[in-house]
Design a protein around this nucleic acid. Sequence first.
DNA 1: CAAAATGTTACCTAATTAGCTAACTTTGAT
DNA 2: ATCAAAGTTAGCTAATTAGGTAACATTTTG
Lengths: 104, 104
Amino acid sequence: MKKEHKHLTSFKSHLDQQYGQRGTIIREEYEEGFEAFKLGAMLQELRKEQGLTQEQLALKCGTTKTYISRIENNASDIRLSTLMRIIHEGLGGHLKFKVDILLK
Amino acid sequence: MKKEHKHLTSFKSHLDQQYGQRGTIIREEYEEGFEAFKLGAMLQELRKEQGLTQEQLALKCGTTKTYISRIENNASDIRLSTLMRIIHEGLGGHLKFKVDILLK
DNA sequence: CAAAATGTTACCTAATTAGCTAACTTTGAT
DNA sequence: ATCAAAGTTAGCTAATTAGGTAACATTTTG
């Protein structure tokens, strides 16, 4: 059974536009409308962009490939501190929030 | 002892620019650079914008003022599902993520 | 095809959040 | 100053995550 996520928007397409400045440090922004089932896909794509296996990512942020797999497949809820750790230490990234509100 | 958070950027200033279209439904975006100690401040400000007490907010999202207080004061880590519930059901908002990564 | 690497699932345990109640404190209004 | 409302803190318990190991499945490589 194919388990690869079907992404609603491709991160790669964003990246591809930037590859002209190859060799320099490039700041990329990834943004997804948030729903629970998308978080795993987002993390998986970020990991693959960096050419990391689940096990390599796990090592960098002090957990196991087992756990990374569960998160990527949305098999479990996740604490904010853990999500931050994966993004900071594992992916070298920085997490931000955005909250949209409808005002009356 | 004063406990009110000192916000690094004011949400209100965003809001004030929009008040011309009073009476219509306005879509507002709130964004904060994320660090753990800012999340509580962010939620507190969003709550106050809507004129809600901790207890009123708690009722809307099925928890207690005790818990809301703990979160606003960053006294505890929080699960993603719980954060979503507070933002959706309590504040009528929508949560998004953004991840910045430095590419080599 | 076979072997190796990568990813998924199952099970158990320990640590932590979330829910609940009650007491205490601070703030705001009269 | 007093009273009421709002917010904070302290226990305790139940539910869930996170960590660990092992077995299984899938994908990739030779």
